[in-house]
Design a protein around this nucleic acid. Structure first.
Lengths: 195, 195
DNA sequence: CCCTTCGCGATACGATCGTATCGCATCAAA
DNA sequence: TTTGATGCGATACGATCGTATCGCGAAGGG
């Protein structure tokens, strides 16, 4: 057999470069040539790993989902109480707006393709569902208030966190305010800021 | 004087066509030629009213803001109590995801340009601020719970509404669920669904 | 009735797009 | 060391991009 390279790693590198461009200029700024330049490789190489542009975009969307998940999970190094885990998870989402605007922006840019491309659409739906289930489980585990509808609360918290992240992104409010608002809402279902 | 036409109307028509394309394919799908085709005019005409593409995009962003405002205000034909107004306003935001996905999608597509272009960025920030102020005023006017932080509540409600709209958009939940979640949260600050 | 002035279509241009194709190193197997 | 499959760069091509420029038709004032 001839030369062997880490196929997956190269693909990820290129897709990552595409995400960076996407965050900076939107999907409009993503072209094969620019991705190659951003990744520091030749245009031919990009073509080698992604025969068509659609392949590259799909791969980028999948990578994006992984990256967001990684970012959120990275905020939970030491798992404390369920209440703590819940709060830290939501905080991580809110902080996406400030710490990883790249991911948020790319996520928004892909929304348009999500309504057109069934694959990407399913990616969004499934991703959202998974997070919602996890949040709901944490709400149930916390359960300091009786008679709480965990599913509804999860939707409130998740929707709120995402809305706040966008608000932070456009400078409508800063992270401190957003965190305060989130804690305010968390307080209502019995989750206090300190641990 | 030679021929006279409604300059502003033509500009609006063209910008509207751009928004439609933007919602369908994202900003990547907006080109001078396609906008002309979508608007049913010649490419030269588009160029006549918008010398550069950036002009067209800026105008589209401004039109988008107006359209969203119009959509929300259209949901308040008969102004009832402040509580009713508050609920209907937020409902209108949530229903953007189902009834006018074009506007939501275009809004997301422009987010990337909002972080780059100071003009568009200010558009987003100012728009968000205005809505927030109005919501906060309505919360204050409703005020069935004592000791409520109207600003924080407004952020919760607005963030939630936007997050829910996105959720509806990608099919994560349907409008009925989203409305139920919104009403659930509204109930907490003393706003009931019936009037 | 002519003539100026503006609205608008048509065409042209270089740049860049996505994609196809070719050719040359490179390295494992024989 | 020969060999052949493979990684990857280079080049080419038509389409489409954004923009510049020209010219005709129309319409109202002289």
């Amino acid at each position: 057999m001839p030369k062997q390279v880490d196929h997956a790693a190269r693909r990820a590198e290129i897709a990552h470069a595409a995400l960076r461009l996407c965050a900076h200029d939107g999907l409009a700024g993503v072209s094969m040539g620019r991705v190659a330049q951003e990744a520091g490789v030749s245009k031919g190489l990009v073509q080698h790993y992604f025969p068509a542009k659609a392949d590259l975009l799909r791969a980028s969307a999948h990578l994006l989902r992984q990256e967001i998940e990684r970012h959120v999970r990275a905020a939970l190094p030491d798992a404390g109480s369920p209440a703590d885990t819940l709060r830290r998870t939501l905080l991580a989402v809110v902080q996406l707006g400030a710490r990883a605007p790249v991911l948020l922006l790319a996520g928004h840019a892909f929304l348009a393709t999500a309504v057109a491309d069934p694959d990407v659409r399913e990616l969004y739906r499934a991703g959202g569902d998974t997070v919602h289930r996890e949040i709901a489980a944490l709400v149930t585990a916390t359960a300091s208030e009786p008679g709480l509808d965990a599913g509804a609360e999860a939707h409130v918290l998740l929707g709120l966190a995402r809305g706040l992240a966008d608000g932070v992104l456009v400078g409508e409010l800063d992270v401190t305010e957003a965190v305060a608002v989130l804690d305010h809402q968390l307080g209502r279902i019995g989750v206090r800021a300190n641990s």
